[in-house]
Design a protein around this nucleic acid. Structure first.
Length: 710
RNA sequence: GCGCGCUUAGCUCAGUGGUAGAGCGACUCGUUUACACCGAGUAGGCCGGGGGUUCAAUCCCCUCAGCGCGCACCA
């Protein structure tokens, strides 16, 4: 008996087993000895950011992916799990900027080239942290195919995509109000915003009529933007203002004459029903402005400060100006009242700074056709979203899609393949080209300059299912089968992959999108590093083992959000030990057996019962996994093994073994049930099952449990 | 404001139109050789409140409350 006696020690085996798996080459589908016509089962990993370190969300998401992959690999599929890391533009730039700041250096002092060098240095040092952490979890990705979204080949695909959209007429450049993060100094798409509740005030301000016959009161949460007001709008149906429409008002402080206009966008119920219109600092106002050809007067700049159009407030931070303006209005008797008001402010999803809508010259991607394709893919059932109540979120976004601001004013990322004439930089004088043009088509003699902007990181993630594959792999490993991800990137990422697949490969990138739950703290709060509510899964792996950690996570992962309960990991540890000890018993009894596990005949009632139960559990676990249920089969298999096999059959077998007529057959059944159980459990707890498997005394067994068929 | 989800044992959660289940914890008993990270037991639940459908509701319908999440043109 080679099996170590006593309790199972995961630490000693896990790293050894993982090394064996990697050396086996079986993470790579090319090395699997599958049937020629075997079906593919392909999962493209949601790219972790290079800045990332493993958190519980990753642990859950990757454990599920590994379960699905291992299950299909064992069952004859040509299985590929493609890993990669995302350059994560803003996030990474933010991290490196913070590092530099500690040394008192800003990126502007360093300059673009030097700064990017620094980011690469940082990436080379820390970028693989999450990969080594994932390995500890036991994930069976094909590391030989790992890609980084800034790899040369990947970059090529991105540039080609940009050119493709340009040629198709889907790209345009224009000055529009965009979501701007003054801290990061870049535009953001609407999906990159988060919101926080803020106790604020609603100020009611009197705007006097130019003819001095009275005034109109407007309500606002942002008095500082009034300096850029170019109209006051009311609903055309609003009787209260009927006789004022067409008249003009004298904008307080600025003493500018502005018209009273009507627009359907105005809600009569809110405030006074009269709204100040600031086309430069509000998306809706910008649209109203376009409908009425209002002037756009920008008063807040890219750093969040008042600019020269803000008169005496020039140079002040917007917030400071707000206070001063309210004071001034009070002095002039133009502040009617102020009310307490709770509202939500948009903040940057990377740095948390409050978003400032400002007019900015950006690149946009027309979304209508693309969105329609993504919509059809799910509506037609060609792509299934599981569970399907997430479809609504998907549809809502796509049905109300806005053009995508794809340019970012940061340095770390894929620079736009756009070249400007340096002599006459205008909105029109550029050409789109991957290579730098030899001669400028506009002035004929300048050295053309590449656009400084980089692409939204999500523009590159959107291409992952095919940009992550080599030319030859594309033939074999595109499209994929299933995408497993968290709900917060359903639109940000998944929707965009779907239309990108159709657009560039004429084929949907995958058939299923499984949305896993979110892991919350025990009191139902979001786990977050900044709030200090996060739990490090590596702590559990270290203390209880990767199997116990995976078990603990999957034990709770029923599809709903999970209020994290650490005791489930204890259960996992105990179970690994139970499996270990039961195996020791069975292996002691069956050391000499060299039979094939299939040669079994149930004789006693107990035999029949356990084999029947085994057949049932195999079938139900199979069905559950194929239907994206993971917690249920684990519970069921657990009950089967612990209670039906260990508590009942194992005890009965002790008597049966004493009976000469039953002895051999009983031992064979013991071994058969054990081996089958190892297979069933392997996707969930791969290390301990693989370790035990190595001791199973069978001829013709495969080298690794990970490729044993069920 | 609209939408979605949740509310079951001390904790975290399964579950079914017909005497309520698991893990962890608690308690009692048990160490003849797989395992004390164990075994055999026990206690503990008006299945969020109210109303309805039904012979029968924890489950279906309505409503209210609390919590969580998403969306909103939240001036």
């Amino acid at each position: 008996m080679e099996l170590i006696t006593g309790a199972y020690e995961p630490k000693e085996t896990e790293s050894k087993i993982y090394e064996q798996w990697e050396q086996s080459g079986y993470f790579n589908p090319d090395n699997l000895s599958v049937e020629k016509d075997a079906k593919n089962y392909i999962v493209y990993m949601p790219l972790p950011n290079v800045t990332g370190t493993l958190h519980m969300g990753h642990a859950l998401n990757n454990t599920i992916q590994d379960i699905v992959i291992r299950y299909h690999r064992m069952n004859g599929y040509r299985t590929l799990w493609l890993p990669g890391t995302d350059h994560a533009g803003i996030a990474t730039q933010y991290v490196v900027e913070k590092e530099l700041k500690k040394k008192g250096i800003s990126r502007f002092e360093l300059g673009r080239e030097k700064f990017i060098e620094k980011v690469w240095e940082w990436k080379n040092q820390y970028g693989n942290t999450i990969i080594s952490q994932l390995k500890k979890l036991g994930v069976s990705c094909d590391w030989s195919r790992i890609r980084f979204t800034m790899d040369e080949a990947y970059a090529k695909d991105i540039q080609n995509a940009f050119v493709h959209y340009h040629e198709k007429g889907f790209l345009y450049r224009g000055k529009r109000v965009v979501n701007w993060c003054p801290r990061c100094g870049t535009s953001l798409s609407e999906l990159e915003l988060e919101y926080k509740d803020e106790k604020s005030k609603l100020w009611y301000i009197k705007y006097p009529l130019t003819d001095k016959t009275g005034y109109v009161v407007v309500a606002t949460t942002r008095p500082e933007t009034m300096l850029g007001d170019t109209a006051v709008a009311v609903n055309p149906k609003d009787e209260r203002y009927k006789n004022l429409v067409g008249k003009t008002l004298l904008l307080p402080i600025m003493h500018r004459e502005i018209p009273i206009i009507t627009d359907d966008a105005i809600d009569m119920e809110f405030g006074t029903g009269a709204v100040k219109v600031t086309p430069a600092h509000d998306m809706v106002d910008f649209e109203i402005g376009e409908r009425h050809t209002l002037e756009v007067i920008q008063v807040i700049d890219e750093r969040g400060k008042m600019n020269e159009s803000a008169g005496i407030y020039n140079g002040m931070k917007a917030e400071e100006a707000r206070g001063k303006i309210i004071e001034k209005l009070k002095e002039e008797g133009l502040l009617e009242k102020e009310e307490e008001y709770d509202h939500r402010v948009a903040i940057c999803y990377r740095c948390g700074h409050v978003i400032e809508p400002i007019p900015s010259l950006q690149w946009f991607l027309k979304m209508n056709d693309l969105a329609k394709n993504a919509l059809d893919a799910v509506k037609s059932g060609k792509v299934k979203i599981i569970p399907n109540n997430f479809e609504k979120k998907y549809f809502d976004w796509l049905e109300n899609i806005r053009d995508w601001t794809i340019s970012r004013q940061i340095w770390w990322g894929h620079r736009l393949p756009v070249w400007f004439c340096t002599n006459q930089q205008t909105t029109e004088n550029y050409i789109v080209s991957i290579e730098k043009p030899d001669t400028c088509p506009f002035c004929k003699n300048c050295d053309m300059e590449q656009a400084p902007d980089v692409l939204d990181t999500w523009f590159s993630s959107a291409l992952w299912p095919f940009a992550g594959l080599s030319e030859s792999d594309l033939k074999n490993y595109y499209p994929g089968t299933t995408l497993i991800t968290a709900r917060d990137i359903l639109n940000l990422w998944v929707a965009r992959m779907i239309y990108s697949g159709i657009e560039f490969k004429k084929e949907l990138p995958f058939m299923n999108v499984f949305i896993n739950g979110t892991i919350l703290t025990k009191d139902g709060k979001r786990m977050s590093k900044s709030l200090g509510t996060g739990i490090d899964p590596l702590k559990y792996i270290d203390q209880y083992g990767a199997d116990a950690t995976r078990f603990g996570i999957m034990w709770q992962a029923n599809g709903q959000d999970i209020r994290w309960d650490e005791t489930a990991i204890t259960a996992g540890k105990k179970f690994a030990n139970k499996l270990w000890n039961a195996s020791r018993f069975v292996l002691q009894q069956t050391e000499h057996l060299k039979q094939k596990p299939g040669d079994i005949t149930p004789i006693t009632e107990a035999d029949k019962k356990i084999l029947g139960a085994l057949g049932e559990i195999k079938k139900s676990v199979k069905k559950d996994i194929e239907e994206f249920e993971f917690s249920k089969p684990l519970h069921n298999a657990y009950d089967f093994f612990w209670h039906e096999f260990c508590d009942v059959y194992l005890e009965t077998s002790k008597e049966q073994i004493k009976d000469e007529k039953l002895s051999e057959n009983t031992k064979t059944i013991l071994l058969h049930v054990l081996l089958s159980s190892l297979k069933i459990f392997h996707p969930f707890i791969p290390f301990v099952t693989e370790e035990i498997y190595s001791y199973i005394p069978l001829e013709n067994k495969k080298k690794y449990l990970m490729i044993e068929e069920w």
